[in-house]
Write a protein that binds this DNA or RNA. Structure first.
Lengths: 251, 251
DNA sequence: CGTATACTTGAATTGAGTCAATAAGTGTGG
DNA sequence: CCACACTTATTGACTCAATTCAAGTATACG
């Protein structure tokens, strides 16, 4: 197994600041996408007083499945891979999360999954206990978190359908289709979709092997559905056909 | 199939009643297991004023995936099957829920899945909007719902690991192990575990075919892990071995 | 008691996995 | 900028776990 070492939280990270004007949340890239979106300026100050901003290097863990769940994180930049492992090393990637998404909302002593950096990350870290205490004073915040959890639950159920019932072509097509939609919603273009994760990550997300992911990419290229100018770069040639392939594998 | 009959709660359908003494929640079989557990008598009255108690026959739907999500349900008796389907009919069962569990907490206009009765059901039904309005007055309730959602998320991630990475023997063993734990926590015995769902339900839950489920049952019986006195009845002969089989398929 | 439905078992098939050999990137230091 | 080592991705040949197709056998129920 790869040797995962923790990155030091320290000099690289900006410490939290006093309340009032100049709240760094106001300039946050995910100010309007995240749970923070519902909060007023003053409420944001309350939240800001709890936050520690930090960075995590590529392929380093934010936390492990077995760690005490002491913090909750909000991603402000980069892509995080969530995964679970069996004792013998078989891995399932349960999701990829990006700017605006929350990490670690588990009502349990330990996290439910391992969170690792696919790309360099910037995060806002909150002490879980104190954030939960803040829920009592800012009920809008708790509602928002419940909304986030509910959306994640829906995504998890879609993924169960994919893992349990879809073929390799349908799995990869679904992944690429959703990733494309996600990219577009963040202002990307169909002409060049960036896949920050590697083939192993994709395979472990789709319940396949890297070989099968690779062969399936090749097939989609041969069928003129997409081009692969580089391994981490996809150009969609036939978006409609890709969407069709997400549910039926005639071809 | 085993004939699950309900110990009847009152007559066929007890309507909601005025507040005060004699609140039927006080006598509810799931009074202490469910989200209701945190509520005081007076708070329970508030909740009770919203509730409609109802029954659903075996194999009838409580709601479909595409229905407008107007109600939230609390199961007071019976087993519910949650599932999603692809256009061509392939089905994935995403979970089985029983007494004390919640149904339909989706922050969306439609439900995320179809809910159907595996056995006859008794349910408490709440209008979603009014229940959400009540959250503002009973913050303990919202916390509890968030806790439930968070547990479901964890279960969903475990299921993704199972669907993506486990073998047929591991899948069935995991299912039987968890179902046993669940049964025991409800006061059942290792000597006779009731499986209300049929082989197709189990197959669709584990991402297998009924044939494979059947063969795998046969194998576990041959290996003296369990006995099958009838198709819906399991007797555990070697619980420890069953647990081992949930993560490693040697043998 | 007969008939439909659910379950089991067997034989043949197949989609994805495994093992193995390139090929293509990626980064490092000279 | 190139040569080297190393990692990641692709491709091919073969295997195998689970599916499909096809009987049979229980079981439930009107």
């Amino acid at each position: 197994m790869t040797n995962h070492r923790f990155q030091s939280f320290g000099n690289q990270l900006a410490q939290s600041r006093p309340h009032g004007v100049g709240n760094p949340c106001e300039a946050c890239p995910v100010r309007d996408m995240s749970v923070c979106a519902t909060l007023s300026g003053e409420e944001l100050d309350r939240l800001n007083s709890l936050v520690t901003r930090m960075r995590v290097d590529r392929e380093k863990a934010v936390f492990y499945e077995w760690d005490a769940a002491e913090h909750v994180y909000n991603v402000t930049g980069g892509t995080v891979r969530l995964s679970k492992m069996l004792a013998d090393g078989r891995r399932q990637v349960t999701g990829f999360v990006g700017p605006g998404d929350f990490l670690g909302i588990a009502y349990s002593d330990t996290y439910a999954y391992t969170a690792e950096a696919v790309t360099p990350l910037s995060l806002c870290r909150f002490p879980r206990r104190r954030l939960e205490a803040l829920f009592d004073e800012l009920p809008g915040l708790e509602k928002r978190v419940l909304g986030v959890a509910s959306n994640e639950l829906r995504a998890a159920q879609d993924q169960m359908l994919l893992l349990g019932r879809k073929t390799a072509v349908e799995k990869l097509s679904t992944f690429l289709w959703k990733w494309t939609q996600h990219t577009l919603s963040q202002g990307g273009s169909l002409e060049s979709i960036d896949l920050p994760m590697n083939r192993t990550d994709i395979a472990d997300y789709l319940g396949l092997t890297t070989e099968t992911v690779s062969r399936t990419f090749t097939r989609l290229v041969k069928d003129d559905v997409l081009e692969l100018p580089s391994t981490h770069h996809v150009v969609l040639r036939d978006a409609e056909r890709l969407q069709e392939l997400t549910e039926s594998q005639q071809g």
